Lab assay of single mutants.
Amino acid sequence: KWEEIAERLREEFNINPEEAREAVEKAGGNEEEARRIVKK
C-alpha cells in the first residue's frame, strides 16, 4: 500500500523514490498527509 502511494507521489510531484517513501512514512501511510509533506 505505502509503495503505491509513494509511486503516485513520485510521479505527480516528480520527486525521487526516497523522498516519496519518506513522505509516506512521516504521514503514517496517509496519502493526503503525505501530499502536504511533499508540497512543503
Results as ranks from 00 to 15, higher is better:
K1A: 15
K1M: 11
W2D: 05
W2A: 06
E3Q: 12
E3S: 14
E3G: 09
E4K: 08
E4R: 09
E4Y: 07
E4A: 09
E4G: 08
E4F: 10
I5D: 02
A6Y: 07
A6P: 00
A6F: 05
E7S: 10
E7Y: 09
E7F: 11
E7T: 12
E7I: 11
E7H: 12
R8E: 02
R8V: 03
R8M: 09
L9I: 10
L9T: 00
L9G: 00
R10E: 07
R10H: 07
R10N: 04
R10S: 12
R10I: 14
R10G: 06
E11I: 15
E11D: 11
E11T: 13
E11K: 15
E11V: 14
E12F: 08
E12C: 08
E12V: 06
E12G: 03
E12A: 07
E12H: 06
F13A: 03
F13Y: 10
F13N: 05
F13Q: 03
N14L: 09
N14E: 05
N14C: 08
N14P: 05
N14Y: 08
I15Y: 01
I15K: 02
I15V: 09
I15A: 04
I15D: 00
I15C: 07
I15P: 02
N16G: 13
N16Q: 13
N16M: 14
N16P: 13
P17R: 12
P17C: 11
P17Q: 14
P17H: 13
P17G: 12
E18R: 11
E18L: 11
E18T: 12
E18W: 11
E18P: 04
E19R: 08
E19W: 11
E19C: 07
E19A: 12
A20H: 01
A20I: 06
A20N: 01
A20M: 01
R21E: 04
R21G: 02
R21C: 07
E22V: 12
E22Q: 14
E22A: 05
E22Y: 12
A23Y: 04
A23D: 01
V24L: 12
V24R: 00
V24K: 01
E25N: 09
E25R: 14
K26R: 10
K26G: 04
K26N: 10
K26H: 07
A27T: 06
A27R: 01
A27Q: 02
A27Y: 01
G28K: 14
G29H: 03
G29L: 03
G29V: 00
G29E: 02
G29R: 03
N30Y: 05
N30G: 04
E31L: 13
E31G: 05
E31R: 03
E32L: 07
E32M: 08
E32V: 08
E32F: 07
E32R: 10
E33L: 11
E33H: 14
E33R: 05
A34D: 00
A34T: 01
A34P: 00
A34Y: 00
A34I: 00
R35G: 03
R35H: 06
R36L: 14
I37Y: 10
I37N: 07
I37D: 06
I37Q: 08
I37T: 07
V38Y: 04
V38A: 15
K39V: 13
K39R: 11
K39M: 15
K40I: 13
K40W: 10
K40R: 11
K40F: 15
